[in-house]
């Protein structure tokens, strides 16, 4: 059994965007704060910090997860992906490019989380329809766009990938 005391920082090691990382965390440190402060990757945003808005969504072992409801020590030994994983050598990936084309973001605060949820959907359910995209998006709040551009971008990528034009 692992037993980590509240008053000390404990080493945490996991795979972040395909690279091993390590840092130190008190048990109460949220994964969001570990990513942003210990590691310095600020792409994962923090909105409500209690599981409602979806801004902090990352993928843990592939599953879209609210990082504000996970403690850094729980990431030990796992594979975590954040929005920084999406672009390839600095080039936006197809979903990010579709977001730009469809004006699927304005202030961009909600965007990293939504990209991570939609990445999972597109990877796992290539035949997802608009109703399914909307259902997945219900786990996110966007104050700017009214969601239409986001849905259009997701459907565009699903169609492109189905047509085999995945770049």
């Amino acid at each position: 059994m692992r037993y980590l005391t509240a008053d000390a920082k404990h080493p945490v090691r996991f795979i972040l965007n395909d690279q091993p990382v390590e840092g130190n965390a008190e048990p109460r440190l949220l994964l969001t704060d570990f990513l942003r402060r210990e590691i310095g990757l600020t792409g994962t945003h923090v909105g409500c910090e209690h599981g409602v808005c979806g801004a902090c969504t990352v993928r843990i072992d592939g599953a879209s997860t609210r990082a504000c409801l996970v403690y850094a020590v729980q990431a030990e030994g796992r594979s975590v992906e954040t929005v920084e994983r999406l672009a390839v050598n600095g080039d936006l990936n197809d979903l990010q490019r579709a977001f730009r084309r469809h004006h699927a973001l304005q202030c961009g605060f909600c965007t990293p989380g939504i990209l991570m949820s939609l990445s999972q959907l597109i990877d796992e359910e290539p035949t997802a329809d608009e109703a399914r995209v909307r259902e997945v998006l219900s786990g996110h709040i966007c104050r700017c766009t009214g969601y239409h551009g986001i849905i259009a971008a997701a459907l565009d990528v699903l169609a492109e990938r189905q047509a085999g034009r995945h770049v």
């Binding site: 059994m1 692992r2 037993y3 980590l4 005391t5 509240a6 008053d7 008190e26 048990p27 109460r28 949220l30 704060d33 910090e49 209690h50 403690y71 020590v73």
Partner: peptide, 12 residues
């Protein structure tokens, strides 16, 4: 907000 401190046990 951030949670108050707690010990974390992960039994096997």
């Amino acid at each position: 907000m951030k949670p108050a401190g707690f010990d974390y046990a992960r039994p096997d």
